[in-house]
Nucleic acid binder design. Structure first.
Length: 205
DNA sequence: ACGGGGATCGGCT
DNA sequence: GCCGATCCCCGTA
């Protein structure tokens, strides 16, 4: 009932750029008493422990970002502008780095996602805030251990979307004001569920 | 198609 | 007090 091999600690215990790229094509699963929602990860961003002023942990540990300082493979969920965003924590405990999940291709529970959004949306998981609302991911999941295979986790998924290394696009990150020139956003080309905002470096669909 | 603005909240200075 | 790792709506075209 865990939808295949649950990604374990070693997967996350690497640098955030590697994890951000390898997360593409994996499946994020969310289970609540209401049911299961799941989607293929198609867009991510890396936030580095060193030299990255856009990282919430750039100026040290606070009550908000403490999950990033914990062991890899846990969630870092924070709130911004009325919505939550989901990150996975990378690298060893004490090294504050993470990968932001920005978009999914839904493969399970798309109707439930739309109910949670409160409207019909043909793309209910484009954007980090929207996908959290669609999957009922909130601050109570901050620090959650993603390797347990309960409530919130990531599976190998047996490659539900086929792509090659050359299908991965790399651009600067969306919405950040600091370190806006670092090429740390990764997404699958020709994937309609990738966040559709006009952004330097994006390709027309 | 694109851009501007407002909503409204927790975390930090 | 201020300011976002956002989203949606509503102008203009």
């Amino acid at each position: 009932m865990s939808w295949g091999k649950v990604l374990q600690r070693e997967f996350y215990n690497r640098d955030p750029i590697t994890v951000a790229k390898e997360l593409l094509g994996k499946v994020l699963v969310r289970e609540t008493p209401e049911g299961v929602t799941a989607g293929v990860v198609v867009e991510t961003e890396a936030y580095l422990a060193q030299g990255d002023p856009a990282n919430h942990a750039f100026r040290g540990m606070t009550s908000r970002n403490k999950s990033m300082f914990g062991p890899p493979g846990h969630a870092y969920v924070y709130r911004i502008h009325q919505v939550c965003c989901l990150n996975v924590v990378t690298e060893p405990e004490g090294v504050p780095s993470a990968v932001l999940i920005r978009a999914l291709m839904p493969i399970e529970g798309i109707e439930m996602m739309r109910e949670r959004l409160g409207r019909f949306d043909s793309l209910p998981t484009t954007g980090p805030g929207k996908l959290c609302k669609a999957m009922a991911i909130d601050l109570s999941l901050d620090g959650w251990d993603l390797t347990l295979g309960e409530q919130l986790w990531v599976v190998e998924g047996n490659e539900p979307v086929e792509f090659a290394e050359s299908d991965i696009a790399v651009t600067t990150r969306i919405g950040v004001t600091a370190a806006k020139d670092l090429p740390l956003r990764f997404f699958l080309k020709r994937q309609p569920f990738v966040n559709f905002v006009s952004h330097r470096g994006d390709r027309r669909r």
